[in-house]
Each structure stands twice: as C-alpha cells, then as structure tokens.
Design a protein around this nucleic acid. Structure first.
Lengths: 141, 141
DNA sequence: GCTTGACCCTGTAGTTGCTACAGGGTCCAT
DNA sequence: ATGGACCCTGTAGCAACTACAGGGTCAAGC
C-alpha cells in the first residue's frame, strides 16, 4: 500500500496532466511535495485531496483565483462560511449571465441557419446576416 | 466627405480598439491599407465593411479561424453556400453544447448555494461539495 | 552488467484574442 | 514654436494550460 504517489499516479488519480500539476505547484496552488533521492516529486494523501478539490472546482468553472480563495477559506475552519457563499453566488450569477448570452446567440444562429437557401454564396443569407447593411466587404490585397 | 479613415475613426465606427485593428492586420485578417505621407494607415469603405463583418462574427462567438473561413467563402461569390452553412451549423452545435454544460453547472451551483447553512467553514456545505469524499485537503507548506 | 523503455526533471515557448505599455513621430491649432 | 491629440513600431502581459527540448532515473529483462 503506497502512501506516496509519483506525479504520474497523482495525475491519473485526478484526471490532470502532469504538466498541469507542475503548473499548479509553480503558481503556488499546490504545495511543493517532498522529493525522493532521485529528485522525483513524492505526493501524499493531502496533496491528492487538495488537487481533487482544485479539479472539481475548475470543472465547476471557478477561475484559479476563485479556487485559491476557496482553498484559503476552506483552511480557516472556524470562520463563518459567508465568504464561501459569496464566491459561489457570484460565480452562479456569472454562469447565469453566460447562459443568457449564449441563448441569445443560439437564437440568432438558428435564425441564420434556418434561412439558408443552399444556393450560391452570392445569395447566402448567413453571409448577408454577417455583412454590414449597405455594401460588401472586400478581400485583402 | 472623407472617403478614407484614420485608424481611430475606423475603430470608433466599428467599436474596435485601435490595437485590435492593428492586430487583425498583423494576423492577415484585415488587408494592409494604403499609407499617408506621414505613414498613417488610410482605410477605405472596403476595410470598414470587412471589419464590420469580422466584429459581428466575433460578437456571435465565431473564432478567428472561423471568421477567416467565412471571409474566404464570402469572397467566392459563385460557390455553393454549403460550406458557410456547415460552419454556422458547427458553431450552433458548439453553442448548444456549451449551454447544456453551463446549465448543468448552474444546477450544481444552485444546489450548493441552497444548502449553505451560514454556519462556520467547518460545516460549510459548499466546501464539502467541492472536497473529495473521505478526507480533507491540507494547506500548502 | 547493460540495455531498453517508461517515467521523471527543468526551462522555455506556444496557444487564443486581444490589451497595454514604452518610446518615439505627425499633425493641427493657437 | 508649442501643446495635445493622434499615429507609428515593437514587445510583453493576461488566463490556464500545453508542448516541446534536452536531459536524468529507475526497474525489468537478457
């Protein structure tokens, strides 16, 4: 039963590329692990848990700065969790805004695609929808 | 009646930063304009139209590569517009996928925020939801 | 004991789509 | 002639990785 892991094992366990693990270390998100005699990184369960937390947060769309804040807060076990709540709420609002934007976009694209008459580019409604009203764009010289 | 524009005017007309216009020129998306005796860029209506097309496409979330393809297609007026349709459909599919992802995300975040008991971080459901099942993450050394 | 191959190391540069300087030149009005 | 608004080139920065190059380490197999 290995209680330490090489970087590759850690990566496989958390679905993270080795380069990404090293990147997290470089930017101070993941602490520097002990090194073996051959200068290999040797991670423990704490690292595994912390990296899992980071990856799950990233999957949920939190930025690295937000993840950093969440980790800091998670470490201060006695503090009220309002700050945590605020980050999550802020992120939720952001996600809802993005969804609304993308839905508007989707509707426009659907309209464009629906109107496509499959004729020549000359009569293409999609190009038309993208072009300015009066004149046509010209190619670069 | 100016029929040429300085870069700043072009930028204001298309809601584009001057640096961005120059960037589009550098990557070959916008053709190099004529220069004045003082080496200032002098744009014409063709440039204005082309840049409008680019900006509108970007607003609709097309990548610069997709915009480049659309511009190439728009210039080949006799070709069938199927390739245009395909790019638009591809992008639409991409947008729909993103919406679905974000909706799943939103639901998870809503669940997290709803469960927040406003206690201490020790009992924070949000942190809990982000943490791996068995053990807690530890701070970097 | 030597080789092979999988893994690890550092350091740097690339990705996307801009944005922000620094350090100058031009142009026009006063 | 001087001020300020504009323009020029070139380079570096942002997020969040990813992809090398050019080496070192380690365990297995012969």
């Amino acid at each position: 039963m290995s209680d330490t892991f090489a970087i590759g094992e850690l990566g496989r366990a958390t679905d993270t590329k080795v380069e990404t693990v090293r990147y997290y270390e470089r930017i101070g998100l993941l602490s520097q692990p002990r090194r073996t005699s051959g200068n290999y990184r040797a991670y423990d369960r704490g690292h595994l848990n912390r990296l899992s937390f980071i990856r799950r947060s990233r999957d949920l769309g939190f930025s690295l700065d937000q993840v950093r804040a969440l980790l800091d807060l998670a470490d201060q076990r006695d503090r009220p969790c309002e700050a945590v709540d605020e980050i999550a709420r802020g992120h939720l609002a952001e996600v809802e805004r993005k969804i609304a934007d993308l839905e508007a976009l989707r509707d426009e694209l659907r309209g464009m695609v629906r109107q496509c008459g499959h004729g020549s580019v000359r009569d293409c409604r999609i190009i038309e929808a993208l072009s300015p009203g009066d004149a046509r764009a010209t190619a670069p010289g």
